[in-house]
Amino acid sequence: MPQHTTLSRQPLYPWPAPGGRFTVDDLADLPHDGHRCEIIEGGLRVAPPVEISHHVIADQVAMRLAAAAPAGWYPVREAGLGIGDSAVVPDVTVLRPGAPLTSVWADPSDVALVVEVEAAGSRRLDRFTKPALYAEAGIESYWRIEPTQAGPVTHLYTQASGGHYRQHRSINPGETAVVELPFQLQLAPASWLD
């Protein structure tokens, strides 16, 4: 006789929306269910899991940065970054020497570079909203990696006067380039999905 099993429902997490704007403390009360939760100017953004290739590219970038990093620099994946009333989670963050490593939320003054890999649900955020937040916070460099049919294209931005970024250059699939910020390393975007 076949054995029957009972599937129980996922537990409910009662979480009342706060009066007014969301804060970093509110994020701790959300269930950890594989979704990335961020706060953009006090509003909650919940992103679904992304394609595996997104993680592969971000992992490859973090590994390449770590291999080239001078002593004391820390390229890390998905570190929280508090910027005013926003709390975002870049795909890769490069922390400067001396940055505290015991905090969940990095201070922008400790960050030299943020990297975002575009996904279907984050394209507009990665192109407009997040770069504006990072630039206003004074983060020196921003990389946006755009998946294309030909392979990943890496757009490099540097801090410009007036609290915004200017595009420094783009590295297309099949190209290899040496970059200087935050430290010298060689980028070959096509190799990230080999």
Rank of each mutant, 00 (worst) to 15 (best):
148 T>P: 03
116 E>W: 02
41 E>P: 00
182 P>C: 00
73 W>D: 01
28 A>W: 12
3 Q>P: 14
139 I>C: 04
63 M>D: 14
172 N>C: 05
88 V>M: 11
26 D>C: 02
140 E>H: 04
154 T>E: 10
66 A>E: 15
33 D>N: 15
79 A>W: 06
78 E>Y: 08
49 P>W: 00
36 R>F: 03
79 A>H: 05
139 I>Y: 03
34 G>W: 00
40 I>K: 08
154 T>I: 11
140 E>C: 05
50 V>Y: 09
101 L>V: 07
104 V>G: 11
47 A>G: 09
183 F>T: 02
142 Y>H: 04
81 L>T: 06
98 G>E: 11
143 W>I: 02
93 T>F: 04
146 E>N: 09
86 S>W: 05
112 A>P: 14
146 E>A: 06
134 Y>I: 07
107 D>F: 03
29 D>G: 14
20 G>T: 05
48 P>L: 00
34 G>L: 06
158 T>E: 13
116 E>P: 01
194 D>L: 05
54 H>V: 00
112 A>F: 05
88 V>I: 14
163 G>S: 09
86 S>Y: 10
100 P>Q: 07
10 Q>I: 13
115 V>R: 02
146 E>Y: 02
183 F>M: 01
141 S>D: 09
19 G>W: 11
180 E>G: 04
1 M>P: 04
102 T>D: 15
84 G>C: 07
26 D>K: 01
147 P>Q: 02
118 E>W: 01
126 D>V: 06
117 V>T: 10
164 H>E: 13
153 V>T: 14
95 L>T: 02
175 E>F: 00
